[in-house]
Nucleic acid binder design. Sequence first.
DNA 1: GCGACAAATCTTGCATACAAGGCAAGCAAG
DNA 2: CTTGCTTGCCTTGTATGCAAGATTTGTCGC
Lengths: 244, 244
Amino acid sequence: MQDLSPQQTAQNGIDEAIVSAILSARIRPGTRLSENQLAALFDVSRTRVREAMMRLEARGIVNVSPRRGWFVVEPSADEAMTVYGARRVIEAGLLRTMDRLTETGRTILNAHLAEEKAAIAAGDRQRLTCLMGDFHIRIAELAGNAILVDILRDLTARTILISMLYQSDFHAMQSHLGHCRIVAAMEAGDFLKAASLSVEHLDEVETGLDLTRRPDPLADLRRSLSLPPQTLASSSKASRKAKP
Amino acid sequence: MQDLSPQQTAQNGIDEAIVSAILSARIRPGTRLSENQLAALFDVSRTRVREAMMRLEARGIVNVSPRRGWFVVEPSADEAMTVYGARRVIEAGLLRTMDRLTETGRTILNAHLAEEKAAIAAGDRQRLTCLMGDFHIRIAELAGNAILVDILRDLTARTILISMLYQSDFHAMQSHLGHCRIVAAMEAGDFLKAASLSVEHLDEVETGLDLTRRPDPLADLRRSLSLPPQTLASSSKASRKAKP
DNA sequence: GCGACAAATCTTGCATACAAGGCAAGCAAG
DNA sequence: CTTGCTTGCCTTGTATGCAAGATTTGTCGC
């Protein structure tokens, strides 16, 4: 099954290290990924870092500004909507093709929901972000289509970046309840309902975004000339590097 | 719209040249893609060829056998089924989200169907292969989701490679009629029907494959010697050396 | 004739070196 | 104090060189 997955075939772990870091919300969108620094971190030459970047670029995870550097993508509002649209299509389509939930599948999903609940109780936001994305990947894994799993993994990565940009409040409990409802429908064997619940769930999350908020500090600066209600401006300072 | 498309962002045209060649069935699965030869062809150094290969690898178009070379993927029977499964999910899901067909959309689709018909009449098999794949991409373009367009483009490339491996007969007219039915349903505004027709259509094509056929390792040689294609009877003796 | 071994040749893997361009700090002039 | 320029550092872009492995071919021994 994993042979179908081109990403897993990648020799070095640089790709997956970065994707995994995004999936667990450990890297912010727009983060600069210096070839030299990564080369030093992974103890390889720039060549291999560059190759990893090329692969990630093709996956829509990073992009390059010529002679300036590699950056984790900062999806625009339009792109964000496109990502959610793609996820709605794929996830609903996926659920509609499923017709039964195996016993192990039930176990996996319930274990996942339990983990979500535990993370909520613990208030571990980073872990929660990771779990919230993983839920949808779990479902794709149950469907057994490795290609769709890979696609959804990358879309989930982008989704997490989008949340970091546009999600002011993290309605964790709301999402968790959405997941619970989907699992309930699946356990009841009503996959059509699960599909429409999934669409509703994604709609809900998308609606919860503040897509008017501009990610780039340039527009932010322009706006602050006229009106100053930008409180998260400190986040742009966080990306400045401290050199000794 | 094309800004959302990471593939189009790729600087050099090597990637798209190869994908385009696959989409028009000009390269067979398993074709060796020598770094040196490509570098000479495009008049660049191996470095840039290698970068293009890395991107294509991430897209599931080529794979590398260490120290042996780069090859256009030869999807296994399992992978073939996975690809068709993914396409069913995405295309049906896509059609189900559409609710109306614009006038220009109608024009585009009908123009496409006319092109298909013309190619059938002309017996231009290569062009036909290209058009057959393009049809599904056109629909995705109408839906307006650039991410799904890119995904479907790559899946279509793999589909074409699959056809070249496993499709003994090219039921062009059958596929064309399938497309016509889908468009008819769309024009009638019945997108649910279009979705199920799309699933049926893909099922039909998948069923038309001979997935028991093992890829013929001598296919290239056979073709360049203008020998008849492999038959089931000759496949068992395929390992015997050709006698002068 | 036939099989095995060995060397030659081709392939990618990877690192390094250098070139070109962007950015920022510093400096000079108004 | 501001503005414009210049210089220098730091980034990626690209090529090239060498190493390691796989395949093929040629040769030797039987």
